[in-house]
């Protein structure tokens, strides 16, 4: 694969990539799902007139009906409203984890590839992190740092950094060995310039694919952590803690835990579809048949 990496940023190629993405069926479905959920999260106050945390004893445990699409919970809160506001938290965490683990993972991977003396050290650190099952590591970290959004993002990011770092390092190592990078090096280009002009652009494809999947995992992991009581504390709604709260009434008032779970599934499905599409189009090594 000796494709010039800078091509990824070249306008013509970029246009082609966009066109192929637009034609990719699962990418299109995923894109629509993710955009709709994002819009719903942003415009939550416009979509619903209820307050996600206001309790009203008169309307407890109402099953889904015209006024309360997803029913109400044991405090008389509208589950649909809580799911909408929960989307804000879940998507924020997903995005935060994708960005933070992306930035740190990319830095670690690039440094590993470019400065070979640090490679062994960084990679052993990553191996060490990877030895912990991701969710358990996140649980430990989140517990240690306290139950708030920030620590949750950091905890989940740490869990997903090693994989991202490995992917970036592998892509960077491939370009590093190509002739034009050698040429740049010989002609006195600085390490920073080589990283910026050559290594980074070539890692973008696999990185983007990876981060979409990290986004999906983060949504699932946030839900799991909230369910265990280690997520953002109630009453602020997150999809995970709505399920956790609704769990005891799951038999009699199934709607409380059913709809947020559906929302998680939909969001994760959307991100996974996006990731599949990006992988097919951007990552030539994983080329998929027509």
């Amino acid at each position: 694969m000796t494709e010039a990496p800078a091509e990824f940023l070249a306008p013509r190629r970029r246009f082609q990539v966009l066109r192929r993405l637009a034609r990719h069926r699962s990418f299109r479905i995923g894109f629509v799902i993710v955009v709709l959920l994002t819009l719903a999260a942003i415009f939550a106050p416009l979509i619903t007139s209820f307050d996600p945390t206001a309790m009203r004893a008169r309307i407890r445990f109402r099953p889904p009906q015209e006024a309360y699409w997803f029913g109400t919970d044991n405090f008389g809160r509208d589950v649909f409203t809580r799911c909408l506001y929960g989307a804000r938290l879940s998507l924020t965490i997903g995005l935060g984890v994708a960005l933070l683990s992306g930035v740190v993972g990319t830095a670690a991977g690039i440094v590993s590839a470019q400065f070979r003396r640090l490679d062994a050290m960084i990679m052993r650190l990553m191996d060490g992190l990877m030895a912990f099952p991701a969710i358990i590591l996140a649980i430990g970290l989140a517990a240690a740092m306290g139950p708030n959004i920030g620590s949750l993002i950091v905890a989940l990011s740490v869990a997903y950094i090693p994989r991202t770092a490995r992917i970036v390092r592998a892509s960077a190592l491939v370009v590093r060995e190509l002739e034009f990078v050698d040429a740049a090096r010989v002609s006195g280009a600085s390490s920073l310039r080589i990283i910026w002009k050559h290594l980074l652009p070539n890692c973008m494809g696999p990185l983007l694919v990876q981060l979409t999947f990290v986004f999906a995992y983060a949504i699932l992991a946030e839900a799991a952590l909230s369910f265990l009581g280690i997520g953002p504390p109630p009453p602020a709604p997150s999809w995970g803690n709505i399920i956790a709260e609704g769990r005891d009434q799951a038999v009699d008032a199934w709607w409380i835990m059913f709809f947020p779970g559906l929302a998680i599934s939909l969001a994760t499905l959307g991100m996974n579809l996006l990731g599949d599409g990006l992988r097919d189009v951007l990552d030539p090594r994983l080329k998929v048949e027509t």
């Binding site: 999906a216 399920i243 799951a250 835990m257 499905l269």
Partner: peptide, 22 residues
């Protein structure tokens, strides 16, 4: 497979308990 990797396990587990156990 896509549904399998997208659905939260604990949620589907609760639903499964309602169906198969309760």
């Amino acid at each position: 497979a896509l549904i399998g990797v997208s659905v939260p396990g604990f949620w589907i587990a609760i639903l499964s308990v309602i169906l198969f156990s309760v």
